[in-house]
């Protein structure tokens, strides 16, 4: 049936098709990253984790492909539990130290730095990320060693007894800073600090000035205002930063090889189990732990309302 109204010249161009069918556009855009994430990343990760449900035959050293929980149960052996607890504690201390160091800096950068100071601070925070991770860790090993810069500085300031007293402490101390937990925590904190500063700075920048003024107006002293308003509202940033500092520390196996004690951490355990020991199932079982810990961490963060004010 002809209405007598002429059609605008019909075109079958792709752009017209995509405008008229937005779902098709979304599908086209998302297909490559989804394939990457789904098959290459998540797929291989799941395959790896599935190994945890098999076991190594103690006599032949061959993986037996019968589903079993025996390998996961091995995690609860005292020696393995030690490794897990040690790693979690180090990651916790690194995270707390990072928050403590990052907060004042992020607060200054977000709320007080003006003009050229802001990009300069941003550069200063980002710059360490540009150089090689290994170079930085080896540099720290030199700084922390017995004859290193820190020891030399302590001597120059007549603070050597103080350093010795710290090194004499149980657990925290050791023969030198570079072979102690203190050194390891310092290096981890140095490495991951930018990942804490940036999300904190972002949430603090978004905090409206009027909220702080309202708190003052209602009688809150600056300290009270910080505890009641600034801290709770920056919690999403703390959580976001903590996800980085915590999970990066949980999984790292290079820093503990170069700096720190000879006791194993989780990453090293996975590394040796899948390499020299050839015990892929137990390595996979270890690898499940940080994932579970992060799931619990996020669930707790959600319960405390960290994401409510986002």
């Amino acid at each position: 049936m002809s209405t007598g109204i002429p059609h605008v010249a019909r075109s079958t161009r792709l752009s017209d098709l995509l405008v008229l069918r937005p779902r098709l556009l979304i599908l086209l855009l998302l297909l490559p990253p989804l394939l990457w994430l789904g098959i290459i990343y998540l797929g291989s990760l799941l395959l790896l984790l599935a190994q945890a449900f098999f076991a190594l035959d103690d006599f032949s050293g061959v993986v037996v492909y019968d589903p079993t929980l025996a390998t996961l149960a091995q995690l609860f052996q005292p020696a393995n539990l030690d490794i897990l607890w040690r790693t979690v504690l180090i990651a916790l201390v690194v995270t707390c130290l990072s928050v403590t160091l990052a907060f004042p800096l992020a607060y200054y950068a977000a709320r007080h730095a003006r003009g050229w100071k802001r990009p300069c601070l941003y550069l200063a925070v980002m710059m360490p990320l540009w150089s090689s991770y290994l170079v930085k860790v080896y540099a720290w090993k030199l700084l922390l060693s017995r004859e290193g810069a820190i020891g030399w500085m302590a001597e120059a300031l007549h603070a050597t007894p103080l350093l010795s007293a710290w090194l004499a402490l149980p657990v925290l101390g050791g023969p030198s800073l570079s072979t102690s937990y203190t050194g390891m925590v310092l290096v981890f904190t140095y490495l991951w600090l930018p990942f804490m500063i940036l999300p904190l700075q972002t949430v603090l920048e978004r905090l409206p000035q009027s909220l702080l003024q309202a708190a003052s107006d209602l009688g809150a002293t600056p300290w009270r205002r910080f505890v009641d308003i600034v801290l709770p509202l920056s919690l999403p940033g703390v959580v976001a930063g903590a996800i980085f500092t915590f999970s990066l520390t949980l999984g790292d196996y290079i820093v503990p090889q170069i700096v720190g004690t000879s006791a194993l951490v989780l990453g090293q355990a996975v590394y040796t189990l899948q390499g020299t020991a050839g015990n892929l199932p137990l390595a996979a079982a270890f690898a499940i732990v940080p994932i579970l810990i992060m799931i619990v961490f996020l669930a707790v963060a959600k319960r405390t309302g960290a994401f409510d004010a986002l």
Binding site: L211, A214, D308
Partner: peptide, 9 residues
């Protein structure tokens, strides 16, 4: 305040 400045949390 102009934007009311209610505490969102």
């Amino acid at each position: 305040f102009q934007d009311y400045a209610l505490f969102p949390h």
